[in-house]
Design a protein around this nucleic acid. Structure first.
Length: 519
RNA sequence: CCGCCUCUAGCUCAAUGGCAGAGCAGUGGACUCUUAAUCCAUUGGUUCUGGGUUCGAAUCCCAGGGGGCGGACCA
């Protein structure tokens, strides 16, 4: 198909093999053609993959500097800019290229009279997707399009594989997630989601720094996977010849630091839970946890509102969101409702963890909630809440006062021995955050751990164990402390306005793909 | 793990039992002000895989695979 290919056959290809490639699918023919072009460029003494390029301005900087340039203007502002070729319009001895860098897009005005015959031919042979660096003066066309009049053009990287559809982008979600690089090239919306995610996380860091928190890093490899109820990933350390777990929470290490006197700490880190994958769950996800000495759960609720409201303002410039057709303003106070009250309302009769287990199990069963025999009263109430209340919560709402038996690290409520000073934040039916007044009594903590371990030994794989080192830390004395965990991916979903966690995780967990050199 | 939906050219999509097509991308040609440029011509197919029904299957059936949604699971 391409004459150039005959001049530069790949060294180990037979003529028959070459024919196969050329008469094969469009993709293979295209890769062969572009690879041949790389050979031609090298043969001409040029470099298809040079080491660096001196750029004077980002495209946004050029655009900002000449925002008011009238149609048909010329300037003596000579710039060197770089980007990927996204569009090309060839009108004979004049070629218009649209290039894009991370900041913006701009048009390149390539005139044969300016760049010369040789340079013009080189530009003509460029493909969509190639990276180029150009130098020239800033100008506007007769129609007013800001452009760079190219006097020099250098190929920075030759693309061998064609871009997806220039107008429709990629729509196949599998391809979008497997080939995120291609998704990011062609889908503006995908890029926007990750810009929002970045802005949100840096907003969190700013708010926390302003509130006097310091950022720390704690181990990912745990001897015991504690701090939450979840099944862990298991791994093995060869030299120590021991089983290790990937962390399922940040909590227990961070609270050790409160014992150590650090007073206000936070960590933004990846945690791993060996559970199902859904629009709300990815096996690895990002959690922010903070712990504040001398504070309790009410302080932590306040900082939760502050963090998320600031993040929305910083990431999208507003605190107003539309969720399932309802407009809500994050700046409005967030309602607080006790879990037992919500559950009671849902089933039409009062429930409380002080009630006999059998009575609660009965109420649950009558309301379509399956009850496992080992569940304690609090667990049954939580299940009623999850089955009947959770999905209906749209606006940000603190659900408070979780029963003691489902909250092994939270402090007992000062007004009710069956409840804890704990809250979870729900928005749009999803749990976004979880916090409490931290249990700091080492004797009570040991008893709670022992209950957990008993439940685990009775067959509940997600329950915890007795963490002796953590108990030893508590014995040194942990000040009164408020703690918080926020699911960062879900906050990003909320602020970006998307329904799938995969839209805010760059490389979501997928089944492995069979990929070959030819595909 | 269960239910429903889906898989056609590199990309976006048609073809509902009767010759596998279009747009974009690519290739060749025209054009010095285009804007998803336009115009002329043109290459490109394991219709996810395997089996079955049928004179005939992208289309119907069965099995398998990938993916999506929902459920289950999941503080």
């Amino acid at each position: 198909m391409s004459g150039g290919n005959e001049q530069h056959p790949p060294a180990d290809d037979t003529a028959a093999g070459l024919d196969d490639q050329q008469t094969g699918s469009g993709l293979q023919a295209e890769r062969v053609r572009r690879s041949a072009q790389v050979d031609e460029i090298r043969a001409s003494g040029a470099e298809p993959y040079p080491y660096r390029f001196d750029r004077t301005d980002s495209l946004a900087e050029v655009r900002a500097r000449h925002a008011d340039l009238e149609a048909g203007s010329e300037t003596d502002d000579r710039v060197s800019v770089a980007g990927r070729i996204m569009l090309a319009r060839d009108s004979g001895k004049l070629i218009f290229l649209t290039i894009r860098d991370r900041s913006d897009e701009i048009q390149l005005f390539v005139s044969k009279a300016v760049i010369g015959d040789e340079g013009f031919d080189a530009v003509k042979s460029l493909d969509l997707g190639d990276w180029v660096g150009v130098s020239g003066e800033v100008m506007t066309t007769r129609k007013g399009e800001l452009s760079v009049r190219v006097s020099q053009c250098q190929l920075l990287s030759k693309a061998i594989r064609p871009l997806p559809d220039k107008w429709h982008g990629l729509t196949d979600v599998d391809t979008r997630f497997r080939q995120r690089y291609a998704d990011l090239i062609v889908n503006d919306e995908a890029r926007r989601h990750f810009e929002i995610r970045h802005a949100m996380i840096s907003s969190f860091r700013r708010t926390l720094a302003h509130e006097g928190f310091i950022e720390v890093e704690t181990p990912v490899l745990h001897v015991e996977a504690g701090g939450a109820h979840a099944r862990p990933f298991v791994t093995h350390h060869n030299t120590l010849d021991m089983q290790l777990y990937l962390r399922i929470a940040l909590e227990l290490h961070l609270k050790r630091l409160i014992v150590g006197g650090m007073e206000r700490v936070f960590e933004i880190g990846r945690i791993f839970r060996n559970e199902g994958i859904s629009t709300r769950h990815n096996p690895e996800f990002t959690m922010m946890e903070l712990y504040q000495a001398f504070a309790d759960w009410t302080d932590v609720m306040n900082i939760t509102e502050l963090l998320i409201t600031n993040a929305a303002r910083d990431a999208i410039g507003t605190t107003t969101l539309t969720i399932r057709g309802t407009e809500i303003d994050l700046a409005d106070p967030w309602p607080r409702v006790r879990m037992i009250d919500a559950a009671s309302e849902a089933v039409g009769t009062d429930v409380h963890p002080s009630m006999p287990r059998d009575v609660l199990a009965d109420i649950a069963a009558k309301n379509g909630v399956k009850v496992a025999p080992q569940w304690l009263p609090g667990k049954i109430i939580e299940e009623i809440f999850e089955a009947h209340c959770e999905a209906g919560i749209v606006r940000p709402t603190f659900v408070t006062g979780h029963p003691v038996d489902i909250s092994p690290l939270a402090r007992v409520h000062r007004d009710d021995p069956h409840l804890t000073e704990r809250f979870e934040l729900f928005v749009d039916g999803r749990e976004l955050a979880n916090g409490y007044s931290e249990l700091n009594d080492p004797v009570e903590q040991r008893a709670r751990f022992e209950d957990e371990q008993a439940a685990k030994e009775a067959g509940d794989a997600e329950r915890g164990t007795v963490d002796e080192d953590y108990l030893r830390a508590l014995e040194y004395g942990m000040p009164p402390t408020g703690g918080l965990g926020i699911g960062m991916d879900r906050v990003a979903m909320l602020i970006a306005g998307v329904d799938s966690i995969r839209e805010v995780v760059l490389f979501p967990t997928l089944r492995p793909e069979v990929i070959t050199h030819e595909s």
